[in-house]
Design a protein around this nucleic acid. Structure first.
Length: 445
RNA sequence: GCCCGGGUGGUGUAGCGGCCUAUCAUUGAGCCCUGUCGAGGCUCGGACUCGGGUUCAAAUCCCGACCUGGGCGCCA
């Protein structure tokens, strides 16, 4: 128990602030005086020599204390630092073939910035596994493990790649409201919230808003933001809070946005394959080639039926049919020309005498990654389609209004960020790729 | 919501009516050891989700609750 609370932490020495990351140090720094700071990953006491493996964001550094050459007090103190405590080390770099990275640090000063309680909620070295539930309960510590850390670095790389990709193509990133007034299109359940004296909802999709922006003159927009769905499904691919990557483009059709989407996916993969940490994830990542295969809904039904699974024209493709088809195709593909009946009201019908629309889904063999379409831009048709789906045009007035004063033709899609990440990294459960996932049961942490 | 699994020390597991005073690994406490790299050797500590039932006897079988993994449904 501490006798008093000190302000030590505010007086961090400049050596800590000027510290190096573990991987910035090499044997070439021999003789230099360096500072590092991080977590006590492992301790190895061999009697006459003591090794402290310090982990930071970049990797590991070995701190070596030979008993006879180390001041007794320092030696004893270091020996007693609990694993996962935060320490700052100052010392001299020594070239050493027997050390993990060809060098070690002979410390002159060891500062314990924060002592870790024992026993730890999970093992950070990877010797003993932990179940997903255990990992999520102690996520802050799970993030100290190599595999989990890399998942989130890769997630960041993917999102940056996507922003870069869209930015150079003239897109503007905008943000639409997450608190909305009314249940939008029926279907998906919404989370009701209390909004002053009224009831409001968390938005399930930026769809209506990004379309309204097409009437603004911003003809190429995107948004990367959370969406909320109150579905009670409990699966490995659903979340109640997810990240949606939404794109909408004016003066273009579904074909254009499909090409944009496949090129964007390839660009994201390209920015992940050269990430060094990928090696820790034990998978063989290959960049897909464009164009992705395109099959029509009709062909999809045929293939699924051919594989012995009964599915009638006009039915949605269920989970098992999706898997059957995924196995047959075996790579990323589009399903195009969907029946109007199973696509939302804003999907543009293909034309006279056809009961299909200009909508598509981007599929990974495991699951759906994205869906999009050319949108209806005619006020009259849109209103008619809303009503024919059994919805009330009145509750869509704010949306429909934007179609009355000059709405260009447009198209777009929404892509699930977590689904892309889990498929790319071959991770079984979508919760693994979310820091603090929200599902039917989990609201904490 | 339906259908299958599973809940055993901090973590990951074995055991599936009596051989259980419950296995193994790892973690923790401690001792030995001058070069570890999943270090090694020894000692100690630590668990059968909860409630009810069957039985001479329950971690083990049955019922219920809770938690949990998966398949499906549902899901713009």
């Amino acid at each position: 128990m501490p006798q008093h609370i000190s302000f030590e932490v505010l007086n961090m020495t400049s050596s800590i602030q000027n510290r190096k990351y573990a991987t910035e140090i090499t044997a070439a720094n021999e003789g230099e005086r360096v500072s590092i700071a991080g977590w006590v990953h492992e301790k190895r006491d061999l009697g006459g020599v003591f090794f402290l493996i310090v982990r930071d964001r970049s990797g590991f550094a070995q701190v070596t204390l030979p008993r006879k050459k180390t001041e007794k007090e320092l030696f004893e103190r270091v020996k007693r630092v609990p694993r996962e405590s935060v320490v700052a080390i100052e010392g001299e770099v020594k070239r050493e073939q027997k050390a993990p990275n060809g060098f070690e640090i002979l410390p002159s000063r060891v500062e314990v910035l924060s002592e870790a309680s024992q026993v730890l909620p999970l093992d950070t070295t990877g010797k003993v596994g932990a179940e997903l539930d255990t990992k999520l309960d102690a996520r802050f510590m799970d993030l100290r493990t190599e595999k989990t850390k890399h998942i989130f670095v890769i997630r960041s790389r993917i999102l940056k790649a996507i922003r870069d990709f869209l930015d150079v193509r003239g897109f503007i990133e905008l943000n639409t409201p997450k608190i909305v007034s009314a249940a939008t299109e029926g279907g998906t359940a919404l989370f009701p919230i209390s909004y002053f004296e009224r009831e409001a909802f968390l938005n399930q999709s930026p769809q209506l808003y990004k379309q309204m922006l097409m009437a603004s003159g911003f003809d190429r927009v995107y948004e990367i933001a959370p969406i909320f769905r109150a579905e009670e499904h409990d699966t490995t691919k659903h979340l109640n809070e997810a990240t949606s990557i939404d794109v909408e483009v004016a003066f273009e059709d579904h074909e254009y946005v499909m090409t944009l989407l496949e090129e964007l996916i390839v660009f994201a993969y390209t920015n992940v394959v050269d990430y060094p940490g990928l090696a820790k994830l034990d998978l063989n990542l290959e960049v897909p080639k464009v164009p992705f295969r395109r099959i029509t809904y009709d062909e999809a039904i045929e293939q699924i039926s051919g594989a012995g699974e009964e599915i009638a024209w006009g039915e949605d493709i269920g989970t098992s049919a999706e898997h059957t088809l995924g196995k047959i195709i075996g790579e990323l593909y589009f399903i195009t020309d969907w029946p109007c009946a199973i696509k939302p009201f804003y999907a543009q019908p293909a034309g006279e005498g056809k009961d299909t629309c200009n909508a598509f889904d981007l599929m990974h063999p495991r699951l759906e990654l994205s869906s999009g379409s050319q949108r209806v831009h005619s006020y009259e048709l849109l209103k008619q389609q809303i009503e024919s789906k059994g919805l009330s045009a009145d509750s869509f007035e704010f949306y429909l209004d934007s179609f009355r004063y000059g709405m260009p033709p447009h198209a777009g899609w929404g892509l699930g960020a977590e689904r892309l990440l889990m498929c790319m990294l071959e991770i079984g459960n979508i919760r693994e790729v979310v820091l603090f996932p929200r599902d039917r049961k989990r609201l904490v942490p």
